[in-house]
Design a protein around this nucleic acid. Structure first.
Lengths: 123, 123
DNA sequence: AACCATGGTTACCCCAAAGTGCCTACTCCC
DNA sequence: GGGAGTAGGCACTTTGGGGTAACCATGGTT
């Protein structure tokens, strides 16, 4: 984790930017998820990248990792922390802004292969 | 400009993420700025990076570039477009979230070498 | 003539993020 | 025994964002 920024925006970007983090946060926004569920939801992600991104989010206090079972095969569940949920409003606004912008640029497309962030609005 | 995203959040991140973009947007949030003013405000940025980041922001429709004078030395002024100003609220929220988080993590510091984004709130 | 200020561009290099492939360890079930 | 499912580690390569330095063009100043 980088420890010096020029303003709060960079600090926030340091947490949510990462190739897979928006998608991961989107899924975890729905409900806690097991590792295998996340892999199923994000078919293109590799095991290494999933673990890595989740580790970074955990280190940043955005998600929590819970291990169930004393011996393998473990059941590992990831869920948003309170800090992670506090990002929700920002993510929703970014989602709305991005969607609006995409709808005005014909050459830009968003693959709505899953729910997106607006579901958080309805709670 | 990348033209495919998985959700609106990624689309927004594609616009505002970049090593110098948050700082540039912060300065342009105050008022239109000349190139040399931006270089003075961001002493560590190189000419190339400043031009590059501004070009990307211009291509994304976030800032507008105005050239005054027919022959060199030109006077070049950059200012936020309406689309850029529409990002203001998101940037302010990200700034607030990041600042709050930094204040709770002792090892994380934010160099307040300039105004930040909260001034937009009063603007 | 030499130099500075202005606003760039171009060529080149570096490194961290991202990606690929293979390995571990454990259990259950056929 | 052997394969599937679960979770993840390690070594290696690739790639693209960022960085340095040099150069262009113009006109004013000393």
């Amino acid at each position: 984790m980088k420890e010096s920024y020029h303003n709060g925006v960079e600090a926030t970007l340091g947490v949510i930017s990462g190739k897979w983090k928006p998608q991961i946060l989107c899924y975890l926004g729905n409900r806690p998820q097991r590792t295998c569920d996340l892999r199923q939801a994000l078919p293109a992600i590799s095991q290494k990248m999933l673990t890595q991104q989740l580790r970074e989010l955990t280190a940043d206090g955005i998600v929590a990792r819970h291990v169930y079972g004393e011996r393998a095969p473990f059941k590992v569940v990831y869920e948003l922390t309170a800090l992670g949920r506090s990002l929700g409003e920002i993510l929703v606004q970014m989602s709305v802004w991005g969607e609006q912008r995409a709808s005005q640029l014909p050459e830009m497309e968003i693959q709505h292969d899953h729910a997106g962030f607006t579901h958080i609005l309805e709670g």
